[in-house]
Design a protein around this nucleic acid. Sequence first.
DNA 1: CCAAAAGTTCGATGTCTGTCAAACTTCGAT
DNA 2: ATCGAAGTTTGACAGACATCGAACTTTTGG
Lengths: 116, 116
Amino acid sequence: MPPHPDIAGVHLQQVLEALVDPVRRQIVRELHAADEALRCGVIDLPVSKSTATHHFNVLREAGLIRQYYVGTSRMNALRRDEVEKVFPGLLALVAAEDHPGAGRPSSGRAGPGGTP
Amino acid sequence: MPPHPDIAGVHLQQVLEALVDPVRRQIVRELHAADEALRCGVIDLPVSKSTATHHFNVLREAGLIRQYYVGTSRMNALRRDEVEKVFPGLLALVAAEDHPGAGRPSSGRAGPGGTP
DNA sequence: CCAAAAGTTCGATGTCTGTCAAACTTCGAT
DNA sequence: ATCGAAGTTTGACAGACATCGAACTTTTGG
């Protein structure tokens, strides 16, 4: 429910910061493929629930996804057309990504506590 | 002179990591606009020379620019067509960027020592 | 030959961001 | 009413990255 920014007002900087994380790109890819809103839990992410919540929030704040509740489930929908209008081709690049392994950052960025 | 990767082998992850930095996008924009190779010094960057060197290296390693020496000057050329072939539309997004202020990261990332 | 110019290398530093665990909230079903 | 499922919130933490200054290399110009 927090604020969904108007994509026209989002800077490329913020969108890139959102998409530079492999986990967040995975989310975008799955939403793109599903072509419909998905529950958070449906997407199998390699991180804890709290971290997942964080990633969804970042995507929302960047104007890439729209979120709304249905019961206790948070639905997530890719803002396809809107994003396409402001950043043409961007989603296609992510959707077409050849996600090797798990799309880990080039310079082994995994954060601490990764998998102790 | 260090290795220039074959762009076809570069992952989207690495390219995004390169382009997420405002300074590096500025470099790409200027090279895009110039449409020819430019000396490092010609591009007026808001960072020290050593930092600039770092940024040019990151861009080269990501396959976005090609570098070669002419005297003591290092020339930098955008690998337009090659990048366009593998990541269509990507350069256009950066080139068309509405660089506000100085394109500082959304979450004030400036690093230490920024402006003491 | 000497000096200036153009970058590079090296080491140090501070901030940011991803990550987790634990406690909490909320809604639906039994 | 109670229990479970689904997420959220709140600290804490560690690793990466951008950044700088100083010293060095190399090439051009006087």
